[in-house]
């Protein structure tokens, strides 16, 4: 659906050249939700703007569908952009227009007749859950509602691709989840390919099928979300994965326990996929004769299955503890014995 070939974008300033996107190759499949994660300055905003040519590439190719975006200009490019819509972190609604008029805006640009326009607007208001708010102005809406208008506006011309530029970064956690649910259902119902950029692993975890981790204009790691969670290879990826699996306070909380970890090791267990839903721990206690002190646990759902982490302290005879660790390995649970660093 979307293919990038040796794509580069260099911003030239009098004092230095900044390479925002560095000879990137990337393929995004039709109908998938593809996430790009990275810290600010990694070049993800530039990357997403290269997809609809809001930024012109310095070199390389961008193709979306059967169109080579980098070769289009003028009218053809504007036509192509109607197929690739975009939502924004700060919504970018026209404050001088009502919700309905905002949603009608891209239809006006596409030259859709008034009658048809009104009908389409009403459908979209229904779809994004804003019934009854059609006559309100953006200033009268909450952040979540504004983003819903943004989404309705983006869907107006039946695009095949939806680009999300940090679409939930200005929203609170609850609203973020509601908007993510809406995006997931749009992806399922309408089969739209969604490309999103974010700095929150939570967003990736919740809705993406595949993820790419971006650093200094390059993709350092990419793959199925669950695979990347299970087995992050790069330092950067591990940091992002930790956002989800290891709440900050975890390490502080277990630090005390690590001091006498010689006799009773503290183990971090990672469960992936179906294993995450099996009663492995019960089995372990029964067969290995150790007692298990559960310190903290977390189960996260991704689009391809569950992913869990559990921090436990194993107490018992040394050989039983050994046996318990072997047992875990046999059951495809990854175990990492934590050491006292201090």
């Amino acid at each position: 659906m979307i293919a990038l070939r040796q794509l580069s974008k260099i911003f030239r300033t009098p004092t230095q050249n900044i390479t925002a996107v560095d000879t990137m190759d990337l393929t995004i499949q039709e109908g998938e939700i593809f996430g790009v994660i990275g810290y600010s300055g990694a070049g993800k905003s530039t990357l997403i703007r290269l997809l609809n040519m809001l930024e012109k590439p310095t070199s390389g190719q961008v193709s979306v569908g059967d169109k080579n975006m980098s070769e289009l200009s003028g009218r053809e490019l504007r036509k192509a952009r109607q197929e690739i819509s975009m939502i924004f972190q700060h919504f970018n609604l026209l404050w001088s227009r009502t919700v309905k008029q905002n949603i009608a805006f891209p239809l006006e640009i596409a030259g859709v007749p008034r009658e048809e326009r009104n009908q389409r607007v009403n459908e979209l208001i229904e779809l994004v859950g804003l019934s009854g708010r059609g006559e309100a102005y953006p200033s009268q809406l909450s952040g979540g509602q504004k983003q819903r208008v943004g989404i309705a506006r983006a869907l107006a011309n039946n695009p095949s691709v939806l680009l999300c530029d940090e679409a939930t970064s200005a929203l609170d956690p609850k609203t973020t989840d509601a908007i993510l649910d809406l995006l997931t259902s749009i992806n399922k119902q309408l089969g739209i390919t969604i490309v999103l950029i974010t700095h929150e692993m939570h967003v990736i975890r919740k809705i993406c099928h595949r993820v790419a981790v971006m650093e200094e204009g390059r993709i350092v790691e990419q793959g199925q979300v669950l695979d990347v969670f299970r087995n992050p290879k790069e330092e950067m990826t591990k940091e992002f994965v930790k956002q989800i699996t290891e709440p900050e306070e975890t390490m502080e909380a277990i630090e005390e326990l690590l001091k006498d970890s010689k006799e009773a090791p503290v183990v971090k267990l990672m469960f992936v996929g179906e294993d995450a839903e099996q009663p492995v721990m019960t089995e372990l206690i029964r067969t290995c004769g150790v007692s298990v002190n559960i310190l903290q646990g977390k189960l996260s759902k991704t689009q391809h299955g569950s992913y869990g982490t559990l921090f436990v302290q194993l107490q018992g005879e040394p050989e039983n503890v050994e046996a318990a660790l072997r047992f875990l390995e046999d059951h495809r649970v990854e175990a990492e014995v934590l050491k006292d660093d201090k």
Binding site: L54, S85, F88, I109, L163
Partner: peptide
């Protein structure tokens, strides 16, 4: 006028006149 709004209009395929 917010540059973001202009960018949004461009992303919808609006020309300079619109």
């Amino acid at each position: 006028v917010d540059k973001g709004v202009i960018e949004a209009a461009q992303s919808m395929g609006a020309g300079q006149g619109s």
